[in-house]
Design a protein around this nucleic acid. Structure first.
Lengths: 149, 149
DNA sequence: CTTGACCTTCCCACGGCTGGAAGGACTATC
DNA sequence: GATAGTCCTTCCAGCCGTGGGAAGGTCAAG
């Protein structure tokens, strides 16, 4: 099975498969005499695992650990759970942060007439926090949670 | 005022100030004879504007537009509002996406014993959606929250 | 034999920074 | 006025995960 087929049936692009191999997330694929990468069902299975973990927002480092636990028959489910809970906490932090931004902006947008005149509370707020009645803007910007941008 | 002072009093790092200048977000600063950048209060004011917009999650491209509107005395508040509303929509989309991830993971984590034994529904879910006992968790992921596939 | 689809490696770009190295400029102290 | 220490300058490289594309090799079909 060539990389294209493996990509199609795993949902991971060929580019990404090569990248994952290069960074050591997955072991080097077998090769044909001419240098083409060759994949077996087990490899595709692993790629699908990675894809699903990405869909759940895990970083590649986390996924490396998850793969290790997956392969380890003597693993403890507590270790997996801990990883998951830590990731959930990161997601929740990020959600709160974005929620703060969105709600602040919504308050400002509601106060903005949105007409042909220049005066705008959104710009006033950005200009300076001279509006004591409005909620604070969020301060931290990124805590490492992967989005899908 | 040197770049270090401007950085301190605006909350934007010196590195960032140079970067913003390089990318054209802000105009080139004045220079001393020896090449040091020099900043006036108005420059710091603009940097603070940028900082606050970043805190609200605006991209640098968006901030460029906001700066243009800010400077433009004949602006229409409708234009500012439109920008804000588009950004809010983006934030909300991302929040929903992260929320889906978090809730799926929470369902899985709750089903995981978290003990010394190896069996773990989290890994089972990642392995393949062939888990009839947890259909809700599986479908939450499939519901449109995929980034670029 | 040629066409076209695939594969290979390689580098570049994105956003939004952060860090560091090499070297010049300034200020304070001896 | 030498020296130390802190600031400033530019340039280069990396982070994360991915897409894009060039230049060239390989393979199957017509």
């Amino acid at each position: 099975m060539n990389i294209g087929e493996a990509a199609k049936s795993s949902g991971v692009s060929a580019k990404m498969i090569r990248y994952y191999e290069e960074t050591g997330l997955i072991p080097p694929a077998a090769r044909t005499q001419s240098g083409y990468r060759v994949y077996a069902e087990a490899d595709v299975h692993r790629l699908r695992f990675i894809r699903r973990a990405r869909d759940l927002g895990f970083s590649l480092v986390d996924i490396g650990e998850l793969l290790g636990l997956w392969r380890d028959q003597s693993r403890q489910s507590a270790d997996v759970k801990q990883l998951a809970l830590a990731h959930i906490a990161g997601l929740r932090r990020k959600i709160v942060e974005l929620e703060d931004m969105a709600s602040t902006l919504e308050t400002l947008a509601q106060a903005c007439q949105g007409n042909a005149r220049p005066d705008c509370p959104i710009l006033s707020e950005l200009e300076g926090p001279a509006h004591p009645s409005l909620p604070d803007a969020a301060s931290a910007r990124d805590n490492g949670v992967r989005g899908k941008g």
